[in-house]
Design a protein around this nucleic acid. Sequence first.
DNA 1: TTGTATGCGTTATCAG
DNA 2: CTGATAACGCATACAA
Lengths: 347, 347
Amino acid sequence: MPLQRRERPAKPATIKDIARSLGVSISTVSRAMRDFPDVNPDTKQAVLDMAKQLDYQPNQVALSLVTRHTHSIGVIVPNLDYFFATAVRGIDEIALEAGYTVLTCQSNESYGREITNTQRLLNSQVDGLIVSLSSATSNVDHMRRLMTRGVPLVLFDRVATDLDATKVVLDNHDGAMQAVNHLFEQGCRRIAYLAGPPSFSISNQRKDGYLAALRQHGLPVNEDLIIHCEFDQAHAYRATEQLLASGQQPDAIFTVSDRLAIGALLALRHRGQRVPEDVALVGFNDEPVASLLTPTLSSVSQPAFEMGKVAAQLFLEQLNSESILPPRTIVLKPVLVVRESSLKRRP
Amino acid sequence: MPLQRRERPAKPATIKDIARSLGVSISTVSRAMRDFPDVNPDTKQAVLDMAKQLDYQPNQVALSLVTRHTHSIGVIVPNLDYFFATAVRGIDEIALEAGYTVLTCQSNESYGREITNTQRLLNSQVDGLIVSLSSATSNVDHMRRLMTRGVPLVLFDRVATDLDATKVVLDNHDGAMQAVNHLFEQGCRRIAYLAGPPSFSISNQRKDGYLAALRQHGLPVNEDLIIHCEFDQAHAYRATEQLLASGQQPDAIFTVSDRLAIGALLALRHRGQRVPEDVALVGFNDEPVASLLTPTLSSVSQPAFEMGKVAAQLFLEQLNSESILPPRTIVLKPVLVVRESSLKRRP
DNA sequence: TTGTATGCGTTATCAG
DNA sequence: CTGATAACGCATACAA
């Protein structure tokens, strides 16, 4: 006895089917469907009825082949953590109301995957790309090629300095300065910086801000208080332990992300250091978890949602322009959110 | 003086361009590109060279129009929180190695958006859909229509009971029982259940497990200890306050998600209730935040990544089958992770 | 081994 | 108001 198997249903109806069963030409159907002026109301109604009856759905692929655009935006992000998930929502928001569909891919912090994703999205004929680079990406020739080919492109957050493209970024320098200034005001003088990988541009911009703030307050720069580590909690934990074990006792740690701050917090706790009494702590990103930690974590807040929205707006602007617009960079301002982890003095 | 404007670059090269500049026919080019057996090695090399020289990229849209499939999978999720972001990574993992691209859309817990997304993805000719339903979705006719049209479909996590489709779900009943059993063993006898909206099937399955566990232990069911609220922290906070104010003092709260558990935890803390001494707490999802709370949160862990992978596998299986496979449901088992918030007794 | 012709579903141009 | 027909970029059956 054969397995229960339902049959494949009939192929989807096309305008051709509508035309045939109505005895009119396909061009008439095409026009009727698209609400053209010069079409007999009766035939139009008949077409619409038949379309409904046959459950007609326009084939976007065929349409794209003709019009050469798909009304879709390719988005490539390194991962879908809180920050990027929020930014993607921002992109989605704007895209949706403009009638665009957002196709999101994760590069998983891999250069190879970023290239694959770029290739695939492009072959799928997305109308352009909004990209945040993977941490492993140092060579941006693949992005450069896009621009050469005239593909609309907007980079956000993780951008390449040596690429002359439209960008949306955070003022990382300023964010770091806010954090360090705050720590200074709290009486901290030996402020450590827990950084990401040395190749990571965002991390370096924040480092510059950190250094600038130290200079501004006449504090010496102690290279031993600047630690680089991979971008996850476990590495931050080890890096912090190392820092404490080295005898370089800091009285504050500023980290390049909340995730690293969490690693640092756990290490501090493990070593019996009180936060903020012994060591104050400030993170970056202001993820929801910040307010749930004990102590609650001070953090530099990024307008992730806004960032996504702006990126999408710039993208659409570029798309709708006749000529290629000269690249520009929008810089958004971060805001320091002070919580318990850095409050040594009550005001 | 006119604005600086670069010109639009030339249109992308097609096989036709290659053919013309080589003086061969397009079919020869087509065959050479795809490594067909019967093509002269010399011409083949010439084609490949020219393709590189012209920076030829195959037009996926045109190809799709012919082959009737796009090698892409549409994914619709209610949001991109930790659970879904992880599940999407799982889908991505499997899809990538099978040569498929994943196009992710968020319904934002909106029924309307879910329909729009379905429509758009379908018109983009994705080869099928992997969907987790929005919380606002009660009518699943749009999914039913997909199935009628023979569109491969896999539902995961948030599925519809009245839809005979292929599904990947968690054994929610079992997860809830594990949680309540554990609380019972810890000496809790007045165990409250903080539920999601009454229409929410996952919430109800967990409720059934909760009730079953109570029965199993001979505990009475107290309807006042079952509270429904919206799916966010703020509502959970209010609901918990209400529960405490009502005089129905529970000695444990089991919540339908970690997010609700956090709301409950904050409310308990605010009311001066100690966790776990006065009220034990167990959440659901085991998000990373669980181990960062104070006290650390016991939670029922879902294999989100695995769930995504299985969903993608079932999807591909369906896609590669000649006939339409009879729908089946894969049930994954949750694991209770015990942490401080529910440990009244040290073993 | 290579070329020709046709079709995928739709829009657009040009005649009726 | 309506109908042919070419075109979009590619694959493929059929010829040569």
